[in-house]
Computed example of a mutant assay.
Amino acid sequence: MDGKRTERGWRGTPDVWLEAAYDLLVEGGVEAVKVMPLADRLGLSRTSFYWHFQDREALLAGLIDRWKAKNTGNLVARCEAPAATIAEAMLNLIDCWVDPQLFDSRLEFAMRTWALTDRTVEVAMAEADATRIAALTALFRRFGYAETEADTRARTLYLTQVGYIALRSQESFAVRLGRIPAYVLTFSGQAPTEAEVAAFRARHAVRSDG
């Protein structure tokens, strides 16, 4: 614990509790997200939790809001990012699949698992899927694809990524980078230019398998 956490009377912050709850969620599922394990992990008292949250349900609602803002919010933003070609637009979107700061696949897997046993989360997941597919469809429509083709390409792209997440597919970053130009061609019908691929790689140059 750092000095701040051991100060007398320090109760943490809502973000501190949410971050610890996130860790428990992705490690052990929603059943692992309980007040006492959180307090033990943070080295704080159980009563400190209730300074920030009315109850466990309020904390879980905070996790749902965090997931919506990060995964759905960033995916929609990448779909709407400026692009001169559909291939460049695809690469903007694929930023989400290779940068966990934009789209958290571990959180997405945990949320989809949680949705299997919680009707509220199931509804939120269905809404998120619909919002994301609509954004992807709009992306294709922006580049002149007819409605049915735009919808089909959007679903092909999205369901492929959901499959990656559901199967917890593991591949090195180098392998995924090598496949991305072919994915762009598969999803859009247009291959990216060397310059577009180079710009994408430059954005992710700091990533490594380590």
Rank of each mutant, 00 (worst) to 15 (best):
residue 80 E to T: 10
residue 126 A to W: 12
residue 126 A to N: 13
residue 201 R to W: 10
residue 76 V to I: 11
residue 61 A to H: 08
residue 34 K to D: 15
residue 109 F to A: 07
residue 18 L to C: 13
residue 12 G to P: 04
residue 62 G to W: 07
residue 64 I to N: 03
residue 201 R to K: 13
residue 150 A to I: 02
residue 104 D to V: 10
residue 160 T to S: 15
residue 35 V to S: 12
residue 64 I to C: 07
residue 195 A to P: 02
residue 123 V to C: 11
residue 161 Q to H: 08
residue 159 L to K: 05
residue 32 A to R: 10
residue 66 R to C: 01
residue 110 A to R: 01
residue 121 V to G: 01
residue 170 Q to L: 10
residue 199 A to F: 02
residue 12 G to Y: 06
residue 209 D to T: 03
residue 150 A to E: 08
residue 192 P to E: 00
residue 166 A to Y: 14
residue 129 D to V: 06
residue 103 F to P: 00
residue 197 V to L: 14
residue 170 Q to I: 09
residue 36 M to W: 08
residue 45 S to L: 06
residue 169 S to L: 12
residue 65 D to N: 11
residue 137 T to G: 01
residue 143 F to C: 00
residue 102 L to R: 04
residue 62 G to F: 09
residue 147 E to Q: 15
residue 113 T to N: 13
residue 17 W to R: 05
residue 110 A to N: 04
residue 185 L to I: 11
residue 121 V to K: 01
residue 153 R to Y: 03
residue 77 A to L: 09
residue 99 D to F: 02
residue 148 T to P: 03
residue 70 K to M: 11
residue 170 Q to T: 15
residue 93 L to K: 05
residue 107 L to W: 07
residue 39 A to R: 13
residue 94 I to N: 06
residue 68 K to M: 12
residue 6 T to E: 08
residue 66 R to H: 13
residue 126 A to L: 11
residue 189 G to V: 06
residue 170 Q to A: 14
residue 80 E to W: 00
residue 9 G to K: 09
residue 162 V to P: 03
residue 68 K to T: 14
residue 94 I to M: 10
residue 94 I to D: 03
residue 83 A to M: 00
residue 12 G to A: 09
residue 117 T to R: 14
residue 112 R to L: 12
residue 102 L to D: 02
residue 23 D to K: 08
residue 24 L to H: 11
residue 184 V to L: 11
residue 60 L to P: 05
residue 184 V to Y: 05
residue 86 I to Y: 00
residue 18 L to I: 06
residue 205 A to H: 14
residue 110 A to I: 08
residue 50 Y to D: 07
residue 126 A to C: 14
residue 200 F to R: 00
residue 106 R to E: 10
residue 169 S to A: 04
residue 35 V to N: 09
residue 145 Y to G: 03
residue 3 G to W: 07
residue 90 M to N: 04
residue 5 R to Y: 11
residue 119 R to Y: 14
residue 66 R to I: 02
residue 28 G to S: 10
residue 18 L to R: 08
residue 11 R to V: 11
residue 8 R to M: 10
residue 44 L to N: 02
residue 144 G to A: 03
residue 187 F to C: 11
residue 8 R to T: 15
residue 207 R to I: 05
residue 87 A to F: 03
residue 102 L to K: 04
residue 172 S to A: 08
residue 163 G to V: 04
residue 84 A to C: 14
residue 11 R to W: 05
residue 98 V to Y: 09
residue 1 M to G: 15
residue 73 G to F: 01
residue 205 A to V: 12
residue 167 L to F: 15
residue 96 C to N: 13
residue 192 P to W: 00
residue 198 A to T: 01
residue 99 D to I: 05
residue 97 W to P: 00
residue 130 A to Y: 05
residue 185 L to Y: 12
residue 116 L to P: 07
residue 200 F to I: 01
residue 159 L to T: 12
residue 19 E to S: 13
residue 77 A to W: 07
residue 110 A to F: 10
residue 163 G to N: 07
residue 62 G to R: 05
residue 112 R to P: 08
residue 58 A to G: 09
residue 18 L to G: 13
residue 169 S to N: 15
residue 15 D to Q: 15
residue 153 R to L: 06
residue 200 F to H: 04
residue 73 G to C: 09
residue 111 M to F: 13
residue 81 A to P: 12
residue 22 Y to I: 02
residue 5 R to C: 09
residue 178 G to Y: 12
residue 162 V to Y: 04
residue 128 A to R: 04
residue 149 E to G: 00
residue 167 L to H: 10
residue 106 R to H: 15
residue 154 A to P: 05
residue 22 Y to A: 02
residue 69 A to F: 06
residue 52 H to W: 06
